[in-house]
Amino acid sequence: MEGFYNFLISNAIFIVMIIVLIVWIGIFTFLYNLDKRLKGIEKEIKGDKHEK
């Protein structure tokens, strides 16, 4: 652990890389959830039509 920490301190570019990865994971999760929610709404609207 100590060695990894020292490695990050001397190679700042890897910190940037980790931050970018975390941001990308965040954006991806957001988009994924949005897609799922939309699918649910689309299904609900279709269901309404069948009731009529």
Partner: peptide, 17 residues
Amino acid sequence: KIFLFLLLAFVSVAGIS
């Protein structure tokens, strides 16, 4: 979607580091 996730993760790792 998973393919996209892995691809862009790989590109940012490769492109930055």
